Computed example of a mutant assay.
Amino acid sequence: MDLTLSVWVLYCMIALCIGSFSAAYTIRWPAKQHYLWKKEAHLLLYIPFTSSSTMQFNRRRSHCTHCKQPLTYKDLIPIFSFVALKGKCRYCKQKISSRYIIIESIHLLCCLPLLWLFDDFYSLTLLTLLVSALITATVIDIEHKLIPDECNTLALACALLLHTSTNNLNYSVLGMMAGYGLVYTLHWLYTVFRGKEGIGLGDAKLLAALGAWLGLLHLPVLLLCASLSGILYTVISKRSNLDYIAFGPFLTISSLLVFYLTL
């Protein structure tokens, strides 16, 4: 691929647009899930469910969370609109959440090296979507201690498709099976002996996707890095008294480090 200035600019804009969608998804997916869980609980208990369905995730167009004004394309250009509007809504002048510009910037920083390292469109597309799925899952896991199946499925599909054209598909499938099997076994053992959940199955699905991406041989290094970083975070933040911390972010960060450092 001829890396001209136009190619760099185009890819940067694509990565930022994906990041913008990711930022919106990290808000809408949890809101939708909580609404559906609440509705299901009411139905199971035979309690009338009267909550309005006109929630943010049901709105077709992006809108200001304060004044509900639908946003135009001028308000939705990643990073540039935020800077031009000085972080405030064009209509009601209320402050815009910085989560959008942060997630968009993270997408750009994490995806930009891919353009330099991979010169074929197929691999570049799959890896960009895979990295975006991991970032999205990480944000939701940090905020809600949940990892969407949609993110895990997209990451897993991209990882397997990426290896279909190489001779490493066997290692990819073995990595997927080993990653899921390991966490599922830990989940089962902890539940049996402690009577409560020690690690969620969302982490098992995430590690399955990461194992499919990085392969079986890199799985031990990934787990070592994620475990050490999780322990270090717990010690530094003095959060050892908490029952549960999100492990997904440590898996994601470690996987990106292993991927870029072992190329």
Rank of each mutant, 00 (worst) to 15 (best):
L115F: 06
G211D: 08
I103V: 14
L126W: 06
S227H: 08
K238T: 01
D243V: 01
C17D: 03
L154M: 00
Q94G: 02
T262M: 08
A178G: 09
A178W: 11
R28K: 13
G211K: 12
Q33D: 01
F193V: 12
N167P: 08
K74V: 12
H63G: 14
K238L: 01
I199A: 02
S20T: 07
I27Y: 04
L232M: 14
A209M: 01
D120Y: 02
E40I: 03
C17V: 15
L169Y: 07
L129M: 08
S255W: 07
T138C: 11
H66K: 14
H218S: 09
A24L: 08
I96W: 04
R61F: 07
W29Q: 14
A212L: 08
A246R: 15
L115D: 06
V235F: 14
T166M: 10
A178F: 11
F21W: 05
H63K: 10
H63S: 15
K32V: 00
T153V: 00
A31L: 15
P30M: 14
T153Y: 00
R60N: 14
S227W: 05
D120T: 14
K93G: 00
L232V: 14
R99A: 04
K74A: 13
G200M: 13
D120N: 15
S22Q: 09
P220K: 01
N167V: 11
L114D: 10
H42L: 04
F49P: 03
I102C: 08
I96N: 13
